[in-house]
Structure formats: C-alpha cells, structure tokens
Design a protein around this nucleic acid. Sequence first.
DNA 1: CGGTTCATTGAAGCTCATCAAACCCCGTGG
DNA 2: CCACGGGGTTTGATGAGCTTCAATGAACCG
Lengths: 246, 246
Amino acid sequence: MNVQRSPFARKLSTFIDLSEPELSVLASLHGRRKTYRAGTGMVHQGQPDQQAYVLAEGWAFSYRLLPGGSRQIVDFQIPGDFLGLRSIMFRSAGQGVEPVTRVQASQVGASNLKDVFERNPRLGSAVLWAASRDDAMVVEHLVGVGRRNAVERTAHLLLELGARLTLVGLGTKAGYDCPLSQYLLADALGLSAVHVNRVLRDLREENLVTFRNGRVDLTNFNGLVALANFDRDYLDHEGPATQKAH
Amino acid sequence: MNVQRSPFARKLSTFIDLSEPELSVLASLHGRRKTYRAGTGMVHQGQPDQQAYVLAEGWAFSYRLLPGGSRQIVDFQIPGDFLGLRSIMFRSAGQGVEPVTRVQASQVGASNLKDVFERNPRLGSAVLWAASRDDAMVVEHLVGVGRRNAVERTAHLLLELGARLTLVGLGTKAGYDCPLSQYLLADALGLSAVHVNRVLRDLREENLVTFRNGRVDLTNFNGLVALANFDRDYLDHEGPATQKAH
DNA sequence: CGGTTCATTGAAGCTCATCAAACCCCGTGG
DNA sequence: CCACGGGGTTTGATGAGCTTCAATGAACCG
C-alpha cells in the first residue's frame, strides 16, 4: 500500500483488492484536479463529453431535464463517487451533472480509461462493478418514487445519504452535514418543494430526523429505519466474484 | 457472418462489430436453453444466483418487492435482452425476475462469463456497454415515474416497448403484440391498475393508441410521441468508442 | 360449469401539487 | 448603517390527480 491512493483507487478498492501494479496504473490515470463552483454545469445534458471524474470534495448531482422545464435528479454524488461515467460509455451524455457546493474533482481521461479496460481486465471489471452499484442506487430511487409515499421516501433518502457518507467518513449514525436545499430534495424525490418542507416538519415533530441549517440530525435512527423500511444491503455488497491478482 | 448468431451475439453486435473469432467465443459460451412458464420465478429477490440469461423467446420482467407487499417493476425484458446480469456481478440478486409469458432463455454460466471478460476485453466492454444501456432505461423510468403524469408516462412506456421490439424485428410503427396485463403495467408505472385502465381508455378515445387483447395499435404514432415527449436517443446509441477488431 | 384472472366502471376520499404570501438570513451597495 | 434584493424556508387555502373500495362483466380453463 505504499503507492499513494487517489480517490479513484480508494473507490475501486472497496470492490476488489488492488495489486501494487494495478494501483500504479490507476495513479498514472489521473488528469489534473479541477474546481467547480456551485451553479456552473460540469456536464451538460446532451453534450458529448468524453470525461469522467472522481469527486474528491464537495457534493454534486446528476439530473435529467424534461421539455416542460421540470427536473428529475437521478442521484447525488458525494466524495469518492464517480461522476459522468455514463458519459464516457455513451457518446452523448443523457444526463447533466451540476455541483451543489464548491467541488473538487479529478479528471480521468476517456481514451486513457478505455486502454486500461482493455489491457487491464480486472480493473475493467472493478469499474463495471462500481457502475453496477450506482445502478442499484438508481433502482432504489425508482422503487422509492414509484412505490413509497412522501414520508417514507424522504426518510429513505436521508438514511441512504447518511449511510453513504458514513462509508467515506463524513457521517455517523447521529447525523451528517448536508448542503442540499429543499428544492434539490424535491427534484430527487419527485415531489414539490412545498411538500418536502411539510414532510420534513412532520419528521421533525415525530422526533425522527431534524434537517436544519445544513445539518441532518438522526434523532431516532432506528425509528427512521423502521419507517423507511431501509435496508442497506444495496449499498454494501460483498464484492465481485473476482479473485485478487497474484 | 457464417457463424450462427445466438441471441446473445445478436445483442452484443448492436453495440460493437464482432469479429469471427469473437463470434465463435460467444457461440461456445452458451449453456443449455431453459424454458420457464409464466408464474414461476426465474431469479428470486435476495437469492444469490450466479446465472445470467439471454432471453431467446417470450417476455419477462425484473422487479423489487417492498415489505408492504407492493411491487415495483424495474424493467421488462424482451427477446435479445439480458437477464440477471446484475445477479452475476453481485453476490446477491437485489431484484427478482419473473416470466410474463412462457420464456426460453439461454443460460450463460458465471464462471464462463468472467473468463471471457478477462481474456476478451472487447467483449467485456461490449457487455459493459449493454449494461449501460439497460441503466439508461432505468433512468428513463425514474424520470417518468418522478416527473411525468400518468398519461404521459403510460404513453412513454408503450412507445419505448414499441421501439425496442422494432429493433429486434417484433414490432413496427403501426403496433406490436404485448402480453402485459394492466396490473403489470401499473407496477411498472407506479400507478394503480384501476388508473392504468382509465388512462388506456383516454388514450384510446383520443385515437392515439389502442391496447386490447394483447395487441398495441399505434393509431397516431406522431401524436403519441408528441404527448409523451418521447425521444429515442436513450435507446439507440452510436455504439461504444471502441474500434472493430481487425 | 363453477372458479380464476383480467378488464371495466362508479363513487368517495386522501395525498399531493399549485398558488399565494410572509418571513428569515445574508450579502451588497447606497 | 440601513435599505434593498434574492435565495431559501414556512404556512395556508384550494383543488387536481390519483388511490381505494366495490361491483359487474368478459374470457378462459380444468
């Protein structure tokens, strides 16, 4: 482990055990670090952008815009997450990505990445793995929006964010810092911002969670888990059926 | 093209140009063909099942069950589609899969598939590609359930199914055979079956689509596309940024 | 045939969106 | 220093869009 671990490597190593040579390959992959301010798009919907990033600092979200002007947020990204992986694989980015806060992201060149996949199949399958986890997340959001009511859905999202942040050391069972506005929550949950506000009030009055001033306090973690029927299985898998390189 | 094309090969060749040797490798991959009757689960939610299939005939659907007893259908599978790809990658299947009609599926052994990925990176990346397309589909469903009303959403699903069936020669702009019940549609759309029925009646009375007796007639294709804001870009990409093997 | 599954329609009511208005916090500039 | 403005939050009032319950009919099947 004496090779310096980038966020990218840290991410992939949660899926497979990386050998030293593989870590070196990953280290060589990194383009420069870029900073984005909130409000500036990183990837625009429909624009081909052969760039992927790994989020080093800050929050972002990926979304799709509808012709009517409404927006569906597909997922939030927190430090350690991939960003724009889909826009490498597809010629055109079906989704836009925008920072929530000031964001630092390491670029990973597309052509680079392609070569690595072909020369270094194990890394390729680790990426497939990671993409698969993101996919599981989207499925979970689909389930929530399709079959959970507003309160369950909101509770579930707050728990998911908490669990993910805890994985990278940015949260605990007690709570976490959360820079999302109620408008962003609404667009992720398929609700109106007004209704999100009322739901949050209800959750607060039931002493389950308090979300205020950029801070989520999980005042009754177990109660919230029960309410949301939260099951973290879709977050932490046991890893792919791939052996460590010898 | 003198190598016999399996559904698997046919599917992958929509993403990359397959060389003769690659086609042979794919041909060698096939386990036996299995038949499933409607009503019997193929993959059960939560059960690890290191099997993937390619649908050769019939329809199936992948779903998630909620503790309350409700069900969210994540996607429908039609001939040529992957099935249970996720259950190979993850130790546990987050989703169940069930046939809609009698189904014929070619098994693809997990260990086999892993080897192929590692020895044959181009095929691996084609699979990643295919998985990515499925992902785009799930995102589209999320957008629909989150931000489209019942009529738009239903119209959109009917158009998506039509487009996908047309790709594999099972449909035209005029219509297609569709074995789905209104209950299945409801669980895919995040609606009640009763409301799906009313929506279908509205669409019929507006002379846009008629869905009756297992047949979808697109009586006003363009009108329906306009209503649903249907954009097929997420279905047919230009293919991955991978060159043909020489 | 009686049983089951699916489609269809009506009636009642709940969940959520929409519109509107006020408020708060905070930064900016006169 | 205070007025102004803007983004976010909060609350009320109203009603649309859906769900739920209930009942009936059509098609199929052992």
